[in-house]
Computed example of a mutant assay.
Amino acid sequence: MEVKDLGAKQIPEALRRTRAVAILRGGSGEHLDDVLDALVDSGVRCLEVTTNTPRALEALRAARLRHGTAAELGVGTVRTPEQVDQAAEAGAQFIVTPGLDEAVADRVRAHDLAYFPGAFTATEVLRAHALGATAVKIFPASLGGPKYVRELRAPLDDVEMLPTGGISPDTAGDFLRAGACAVGVGGPLLGDALDTGDLDGLRSRARALLDATGGAA
């Protein structure tokens, strides 16, 4: 099927500046608000809460009220157009998907949100770009590593890429030097904070991440 290049929303300024998306997934939901606040206060200003995290939309809606324009907040693991609608209603500014779905892409465009669809091969990356990706989430990034991102970027240097999956504060810089516009970091950044509420360790890892990406204030 022929696909026309549909254009894309620009990369959010907070992501352009910090070059990192914090991915919040899991836990009971009890500590979600505190973790969101601790990350924003630490300087991580682009945050994704996944649909399979308890209280995801409730927490995102409340965080938008607390932080206003200080943070870019989005919803991840979006798999259906209905989930796009729910995310937009909750105040999401961007949508992240694990793969490619044209109906989801259409709904994201209808809401005029930034769009980060998951892809891995060159064919998938081109498809995501044609569907209007703001940047293509290269997932799982740990499977190919920074060298794989560098090789993808060689012929596709007009496509913004955001590697995600298995990236830590220690390896984030390697992916950026390989040509990524930013990185998505989940478990290695969050640790057990969503389960235990340990914010001290979280703040330390957040500072390390921003030091690695050059996004620290």
Results as ranks from 00 to 15, higher is better:
50 T>P: 12
65 L>W: 11
146 P>F: 04
166 G>T: 07
34 D>H: 11
121 T>R: 13
111 H>T: 04
111 H>E: 06
1 M>G: 13
29 G>N: 11
64 R>T: 03
185 V>Q: 00
20 A>W: 01
43 G>H: 02
192 D>M: 09
15 L>Y: 09
190 L>S: 07
191 G>N: 13
127 R>P: 02
165 G>K: 10
97 T>Y: 06
92 A>N: 08
89 E>V: 12
161 M>Q: 07
95 I>Y: 05
173 G>R: 01
54 P>L: 07
120 F>M: 14
60 L>V: 02
184 G>I: 06
171 T>M: 12
205 R>D: 00
168 S>F: 01
103 A>S: 08
199 L>H: 10
114 A>M: 12
164 T>Y: 04
68 G>D: 11
104 V>N: 00
193 A>M: 11
126 L>K: 09
59 A>V: 07
207 R>P: 08
189 L>D: 11
17 R>K: 15
33 D>M: 13
141 A>D: 10
199 L>A: 09
113 L>H: 01
155 P>C: 02
188 P>I: 07
83 Q>V: 09
113 L>Y: 01
96 V>M: 02
147 K>M: 09
153 R>M: 15
63 A>S: 15
87 A>K: 10
39 L>N: 04
14 A>K: 14
110 A>S: 09
74 G>E: 13
109 R>H: 15
20 A>I: 01
205 R>V: 00
45 R>Y: 12
136 V>L: 03
145 G>W: 06
154 A>W: 05
113 L>T: 00
123 T>I: 12
72 E>Q: 11
153 R>E: 05
207 R>I: 04
54 P>C: 10
65 L>P: 02
46 C>F: 10
159 V>W: 13
209 L>C: 02
212 A>M: 01
91 G>T: 10
179 G>F: 03
142 S>I: 11
201 G>M: 06
197 G>V: 12
58 E>K: 12
171 T>A: 11
82 E>P: 05
164 T>N: 08
6 L>F: 12
216 A>T: 05
5 D>N: 15
170 D>Q: 13
166 G>E: 14
125 V>I: 15
168 S>T: 15
78 V>E: 08
9 K>W: 01
17 R>V: 10
37 D>L: 13
195 D>K: 15
42 S>H: 10
26 G>A: 10
214 G>T: 01
20 A>C: 14
145 G>E: 11
216 A>M: 05
172 A>R: 03
173 G>Y: 00
13 E>F: 04
201 G>A: 09
162 L>G: 05
212 A>R: 00
190 L>G: 00
20 A>P: 03
19 R>N: 01
60 L>E: 12
207 R>W: 00
21 V>W: 00
132 G>L: 07
72 E>H: 09
124 E>L: 14
67 H>N: 01
177 R>Y: 13
70 A>R: 14
24 L>K: 02
105 A>D: 06
122 A>Q: 01
114 A>T: 02
97 T>M: 06
198 D>L: 04
192 D>A: 14
110 A>W: 03
28 S>Y: 10
170 D>T: 06
186 G>M: 04
83 Q>R: 05
103 A>T: 07
140 P>V: 03
85 D>V: 08
30 E>Q: 14
136 V>H: 08
32 L>C: 10
56 A>L: 11
200 D>A: 14
99 G>L: 14
209 L>Q: 00
125 V>N: 13
